[in-house]
Simulated scan of single mutants.
Amino acid sequence: MNLNDRQRKLLFAGLVVLLALVGVYLTVAAPDGDSGDADDRPSAAATVPAGPTGPASPPPGIQSPVKPGDFDLYRLLPFSQQEFATAADLAQRFVAAYGTYRFDEDPKVYVGRLTGMVTDGLRGEIERGATSPGIQDDRRQKQIVAQGTATLDRVRDIEDNSIIFLVTGKQQVTKGGAAGDDSKQYAVTVARDGGSLKVYAFQPADTGQAGDTGDPG
């Protein structure tokens, strides 16, 4: 079909109007950009688990030339020097307290000593382990008494909200009157929990744990 210039211009204008009407129709007919059953599927935001609160502000960074004799490492970290020291102290105290118990002690007293150091989730895991009949029977039968201490070894990893420490727990253990020593290295994750720092997870270090789950051992 041969069209003159006027006819081609009219045809082009008609197509433009038609496309505009189609766009308006699609916008009105589907304002949510999806089909009617979209509410039956969880959104991506709903499936993201709650986590520790992030830092109030990013690290200040360093703009001036770096001087080896005057280098402030904490300007590059998401934790201040005070927070780092608090987290390290917490990891060390937790491992020492975790390794201290008696066969004739109420397990609720043992768990109570750890409560202020750990998140609610980890507290539940520790409580289930400490109150299990098998562990309690074994400690009573062998009359186990353990006194724990801990040594900070090194930092395994640092994230925006957490620090993973490698901590060696040492125990002086008495079983049936016989004394002995025991030690084990743990990966201990200390994370922001609201306005404080808490032990979020821990596990034997040789499992390659990244600090995201807890295991009361």
Score class of each variant (00 low, 15 high):
Asn2Ser: 09
Leu11Tyr: 07
Ala13Pro: 09
Ala13His: 10
Val17Cys: 08
Leu18Glu: 05
Leu18Phe: 14
Leu19Trp: 07
Ala20Ser: 11
Val28Gln: 08
Ala29Asp: 04
Ala30Pro: 00
Pro31Thr: 09
Asp34Arg: 05
Asp37Phe: 04
Pro42Leu: 08
Pro42Lys: 05
Ala44Thr: 05
Ala45Val: 14
Val48Asp: 07
Val48Leu: 05
Pro49Gly: 03
Gly51Arg: 15
Pro52Ala: 15
Gly54Tyr: 05
Pro55Lys: 15
Ala56Ile: 11
Ala56Lys: 13
Ser57His: 12
Ser57Gly: 12
Pro58Arg: 13
Pro58Tyr: 05
Gln63Met: 14
Val66Ile: 15
Pro68Cys: 00
Asp72Val: 10
Gln81Asp: 13
Ala85Ile: 12
Ala87Arg: 07
Ala88Gln: 15
Ala88Lys: 15
Leu90Gln: 12
Leu90Lys: 14
Ala91Trp: 06
Phe94Tyr: 15
Val95Asp: 06
Thr100Pro: 01
Tyr101Asp: 01
Val111Phe: 02
Arg113Tyr: 01
Met117Glu: 12
Thr119Gly: 07
Gly124Leu: 06
Gly124Cys: 03
Ile126Gln: 00
Ala130Gly: 01
Thr131Met: 09
Gly134Ile: 08
Ile135Asn: 10
Gln136His: 01
Gln136Leu: 11
Asp137Tyr: 04
Arg139Cys: 01
Gln141Leu: 15
Ala146Glu: 11
Thr149Gln: 06
Ala150Met: 04
Asp157Trp: 06
Asn161Gly: 12
Ile163Thr: 08
Leu166Cys: 01
Thr168His: 02
Lys170Glu: 13
Gly176Thr: 06
Gly177Tyr: 00
Ala178Thr: 14
Asp182Pro: 02
Ser183Val: 04
Ser183Leu: 08
Ser183Phe: 07
Ser183Ile: 02
Tyr186Arg: 11
Tyr186Cys: 05
Thr189Gly: 03
Val190Lys: 09
Arg192Asp: 09
Asp193Gln: 12
Phe202Met: 12
Gln203Asp: 13
Thr207Gln: 10
Gly208Met: 08
Gly211Trp: 10
Gly217Gln: 10
